[in-house]
């Protein structure tokens, strides 16, 4: 059931990123960098993290029925709502699911029936975006990925991992250090780029737009396959910083070659609560997002907000970050994510 986590080879590898292969990769990294895959033996850590999540959610759903085994009372439905909220599912989504549950409560008389119902509700929300759940890659074009998000979400680390993944597939990658604000952000990206073997474009302290322009130019000139652009973390309510992003978007539109595949990706910390919805809303409006990257899913955070983001903003999750190692990046598969939650 965790096949999506173990990097099974994709059939249609020309239209999506093929994964790095079936064997776990060992990467030459400086000794101080701890990789989850090295430290804990491959994917077991995510498996255990997710099954922990699954257990606690399923566990609390089971607990709702208790020993009585009778039909659901209103209090029990309230408890289910609370269970969802505790997993950081957005309030409206939680209310919608429990309203549907209320209407159907007469036919739900066992924990198993409840579980089936919840699973069905969740997949109805996530399934429409199944086809969009992979990063697009066009072998004939320059693929430009612009990475945005709030401070500390994990943008730079994600870029390191993504660059590594493309390079493992034999692609030529340019990385643009567009975070010229945070102290040493360029250094951080430089270390990742070196580990991954990507070309780095940096102009410390310069206007981010000019770095982004140069990175795309460099990608065109060197006939790279992929350009990944970092941006400074910004809180979505900072009007002037969001205006700066808009400018960056225009720069990309101007600089990109005729044949280009551009994706805007929002990096979202799995521990984020209801504010994730605001982030999705505002960044989507400014950047025409094509998807979300969910990071730090190796903790005990449940990442329940991705349900709300899919339902309210039609944004698919494209990848998940599951550790600090360069290989700790996975494709997202909604069905298997739900399976992991419920089994």
């Amino acid at each position: 059931m965790f096949k999506w986590l173990t990097g099974k080879p994709k059939k249609e590898s020309s239209s999506v990123i093929g994964t790095a292969g079936t064997t776990p990769l060992k990467h030459p990294e400086p000794s101080q960098s701890k990789s989850t895959s090295e430290k804990k033996g491959g994917l077991s850590s995510l498996k255990s993290a997710l099954s922990l999540t699954g257990k606690s959610l399923v566990g609390s759903l089971r607990g709702v029925f208790g020993d009585s085994g009778t039909a659901l009372s209103d209090e029990k439905i309230d408890e289910i709502e609370e269970t969802l909220l505790r997993a950081d599912v957005g309030l409206d989504t939680a209310v919608q699911i429990t309203d549907t549950l209320r209407k159907n409560k007469n036919r739900i008389q066992s924990p198993e029936a409840l579980m089936d119902f919840m699973q069905e509700e969740f997949s109805q929300i996530l399934r429409p975006y199944e086809s969009a759940n992979t990063l697009k890659y066009d072998p004939q074009a320059l693929n430009i990925y612009i990475v945005v998000g709030v401070n500390g979400a994990g943008k730079t680390t994600f870029i390191g991992k993504l660059a590594h993944r493309f390079i493992q597939e034999g692609k030529k990658v340019v990385v643009g250090a567009g975070d010229t604000f945070r102290a040493a952000a360029e250094d951080q990206l430089a270390i990742w780029a070196e580990r991954a073997g990507a070309e780095l474009i940096r102009k410390d302290g310069a206007d981010p737009s000019s770095v982004i322009f140069e990175a795309i130019e460099s990608g065109k000139n060197s006939q790279a396959n992929v350009v990944i652009l970092d941006t400074a973390g910004r809180l979505q309510n900072k009007y002037n910083l969001m205006e700066e992003l808009q400018k960056i978007r225009h720069v990309i539109d101007k600089a990109k070659p005729e044949h280009a595949n551009v994706e805007s990706l929002l990096v979202l910390d799995a521990t984020t609560g209801q504010n994730a919805l605001k982030q999705a809303e505002v960044f989507k409006e400014i950047m025409a997002l094509s998807g979300v990257i969910l990071t730090k899913l190796d903790g005990s955070a449940k990442g329940g907000m991705i349900l709300s983001i899919a339902r309210e903003y039609q944004l698919p999750v494209k990848m998940v970050g599951v550790g600090e190692g360069i290989g700790d990046l996975r494709d997202f598969n909604p069905n298997e994510f739900i399976d992991a939650l419920f089994k």
């Binding site: 101080q32 102290a183 040493a184 952000a185 250094d187 951080q188 270390i191 600090e324």
Partner: peptide
Amino acid sequence: DVYRPAAINQLIALGQQ
């Protein structure tokens, strides 16, 4: 912070500021 790339540089830069 000896793990995150450039975390030390970040603190050095802030210290200078």
